[in-house]
């Protein structure tokens, strides 16, 4: 199909269209992704995550400004939550980056989570492939303002910037709660405000304990003021240093392998799920099963095992 060619030629219109197809799970999705797959793998993918309002979008805006100087083509995927009530979404990240919208070397796409948990949307991973194939050599993904469990971005990004800011509840309690585990480079934003030093100190303290025995692995912490465009160059330097270090240690390859592995697993289980659904038709049967269980006429494991066995026999897999 020629949409792939158009994307490779750099047509933003077709790229945008393809993103929608992926997002909408349209029938052409797999074909497009597979056709473009050989052209992927060249982009550096940076994830930007952190609590709501910590300044992620503002930071991305300033990173764009900074990296443009280096002749990059940059793609941004900005994810915002869909309303659980209406299914609609007000995709607000883009506003903070809007002044770049006239720049032909920048492509920004807002995505709604559409019910997907994990801080990104179900399609985000495929969308990065499209941007990658289209020649965007730096891709920045801004996640939804995360809590503690929404950390799917680790499976997607090469490197993760975890933003924190004073006055956002980014205190030591939150840090202990596990979100810390996902950051590669820590960004203390809003350094123009009181309390930023304190956030940094606490962060230092927690990381010092964590890396007590191997301090050389301690993650970098960078103070910036995204609003005032301060500290961005230093931040990006430390990002690139971090990557070089990973490469030297041979961890870069591992990281990418793990990513692919996780992705394959995900596609695999999703496909199995869909397949089962088609054959067993479980979405439709579910109500009947519930009845059986309510009336104690069936037990959960034996019911499911029975259904699965009959499917496997029918399809003559065994």
């Amino acid at each position: 199909m020629d949409i792939e060619n158009k994307i490779l030629e750099g047509s933003p219109r077709h790229l945008a269209r393809a993103i929608s197809m992926v997002e909408n799970n349209s029938p052409q999705k797999e074909e497009i992704i597979d056709a473009l797959y050989p052209k992927t793998g060249n982009a550096l993918i940076i994830g930007v995550t952190g609590s709501p309002g910590s300044g992620k979008s503002t930071l991305v805006d300033k990173i764009l400004k900074n990296e443009l100087k280096k002749d990059q083509k940059i793609g941004v995927i900005a994810v915002d939550p869909s309303s659980p009530f209406s299914g609609g979404a007000l995709l607000g990240d883009r506003i903070r980056m809007q002044k770049h919208s006239g720049n032909p070397n920048i492509f920004i796409r807002s995505m709604a989570s559409r019910g997907h948990l994990g801080g990104i949307s179900a399609a985000t991973s495929d969308v990065t492939k499209l941007l990658d194939a289209a020649g965007y050599n730096l891709i920045i993904i801004e996640t939804i303002g995360v809590g503690q469990t929404e950390v799917e971005i680790i499976e997607l990004a090469d490197i993760i910037l975890l933003t924190m800011a004073p006055g956002m509840g980014d205190d030591i309690q939150a840090m202990k709660a596990g979100i810390m585990e996902i950051g590669d480079v820590f960004v203390v934003n809003k350094k123009d405000k009181d309390g930023a030093d304190k956030v940094k100190k606490e962060l230092d303290y927690v990381l010092d304990i964590k890396y007590h025995d191997n301090p050389e692995n301690k993650n970098p912490i960078k103070m910036v003021s995204a609003l005032n465009n301060e500290g961005i160059e230093e931040l990006m330097n430390s990002v690139y240093n971090y990557i070089n270090k990973l490469k030297k240690q041979g961890k870069w390859e591992d990281k990418r392998k793990t990513k692919i592995k996780k992705e394959l697993k995900k596609i695999f289980s999703k496909k199995i799920h869909e397949l089962m659904d088609i054959h067993i038709n479980y979405t439709e049967k579910l109500d009947d099963w519930v009845k059986l269980l309510m009336n104690k006429e069936e037990k959960p494991y034996s019911l499911i095992n029975k259904e699965l066995k009959s499917f496997i026999k029918e399809s003559e897999i065994l």
Binding site: P12, A16, A89, L91, R109
Partner: peptide, 21 residues
């Protein structure tokens, strides 16, 4: 799903945004 551009947009930047999104 709604995207808002903010103030003072040139026709070109509105069109670019519409296309990218």
């Amino acid at each position: 799903e709604v995207i808002y551009t903010g103030l003072r947009q040139t026709p070109q930047s509105i069109v670019n945004t519409a296309i990218q999104e």
